[in-house]
Write a protein that binds this DNA or RNA. Structure first.
Lengths: 245, 245
DNA sequence: TCTAATTGTCTAGATCAATAGACAAATTGA
DNA sequence: TCAATTTGTCTATTGATCTAGACAATTAGA
């Protein structure tokens, strides 16, 4: 839409700005039909910088897993399109990405029982300090980390949720095994911020990258809150769709 | 939640990382009840950098209008809380921010008639190349730019929309004057990216800042598309809430 | 009024970012 | 096989960023 120029002396190195620009350009026709980027010399001319500066940008994107380059041939994009993740009343990780990635999977990184803090207690409608179970999860599409979420469940109602998730790799199935066959999204809040340490590690991002943060509550058929979760998405790999009804 | 450490040699200057960190810390208890930040020396110690580096970060935030500092007294936050902007079927700019800001206003920056491109035509259900009216608008809360939007309307159905918006400073009223008394949001897509030139100028951001981009279609009572819009929010000043139903 | 706390300004040196140029190494197609 | 294209590596130089230290200016409180 607007051709964002580079800014010097604003605390962001040119190679990083160019890297962000290239990432954005991918999917907007920067690469050709084979996913091949223009040669370094041409990019340098287009951005009005030295080739070494473009090379630094490309090196960073290669490190992130966005690009891959071959001597004598050129530099190629690893994945062309951004995923679209639906946010609606009936969001399920795997079903939402169907048709966009061959392999979709939820991995349980960690789980623990802990007393609910004020926010979690309020969201789940529990008294403060009541025991809840916290799950740390990673969502993957074709082996690439897409989302990193933290969820809380009542320890009384879902004592075995962690085991079920570990076994089935699915929240929907784990809830079904716990006796909750249906659930829906009651509310979602979305914000954006720079990636922090946890994000860069788990989502394989570089510092300065953007994460979308979605916080929300899932309720059962009777409207009773069963899950509070906070999910971080890589803004480079995902966009969110708010589906009506 | 996680104490994000600083990263050296990653293309983002320390003073900018610290600036982002301070911005995030505001509203998470970094400033005291009077909006006063810890002294520079303490911040420098906390981040493990020289005081001059913290000063560079603060200088940038002062330039952005986030902070204000007084010699001998300390450094203060200008606005403590982030606004919450609701995204739902019945989103209206002014009503959505009611109670969060005293003064809310929509300003028409520019308008023109132009042939619809493929995306706009598809969204509005028009043939490609049919004339549409494009409005460039700025949303303000208490004089601070909050959102920057571009909207398209059918030129046949809403020939005078620009004049009505300029006069009433309200989309809802301009549509009513055009004969459309009710409308609702059919779909919204949300993504996050770094601010580009237009964003930094109109929303008074610094490069490297984050914008939330919401794209969506409003339809009238019969489900007929009447407005396609693309709105950019400053992620530092706004969070989005997805309201159900 | 004096002192402590705090922000503002200056100087000097060390490290990182960007430019410039040259040439090597690999690939492709004539 | 040869030439053109493209990525990979090296050296050297200039400007931006970060550190270190010292001291001035302003404010608030004892």
């Amino acid at each position: 839409m607007s051709k964002s120029a580079l800014h010097r002396g604003v605390g962001v190195a040119l190679w990083r700005q160019i890297g962000d620009e290239i990432r954005r350009g991918i999917g907007a026709g920067l690469a050709d039909e084979n996913g091949r980027l223009p040669p370094e010399a041409e990019l340098a001319a287009r951005f009005g910088v030295n080739r070494h500066t473009v090379r630094a940008a490309i090196a960073a994107l290669i490190h992130e897993g966005v690009l891959r380059s071959e001597q004598g041939r050129g530099t190629y994009v690893r994945r062309q399109k951004r995923l679209t993740y639906p946010i609606g009343t009936r969001t399920r990780f795997s079903a939402g990405l169907e048709g966009q990635a061959r392999d979709r999977q939820v991995e349980l990184l960690d789980h623990m029982k802990e007393p609910a803090n004020a926010v979690v207690a309020a969201a789940l409608g529990l008294g403060a300090g009541v025991d809840v179970i916290r799950l740390e999860m990673l969502g993957l599409a074709d082996g690439v980390p897409i989302s990193r979420s933290t969820s809380w469940f009542s320890a009384t109602l879902f004592p075995d949720i962690a085991g079920y998730v570990a076994r089935t790799h699915s929240i929907t199935e784990a809830l079904a095994l716990s006796g909750t066959r249906d659930y829906r999204r009651a509310s979602t809040t979305i914000e954006a911020r720079h990636a922090d340490d946890t994000d860069t590690r788990d989502l394989r991002l570089s510092p300065g990258a953007i994460v979308l943060v979605a916080r929300g509550v899932n309720v059962d058929g009777n409207g009773k809150p069963i899950q509070y979760s906070q999910t971080r998405f890589s803004a480079d790999r995902v966009e969110l769709t708010v589906s009506p009804a």
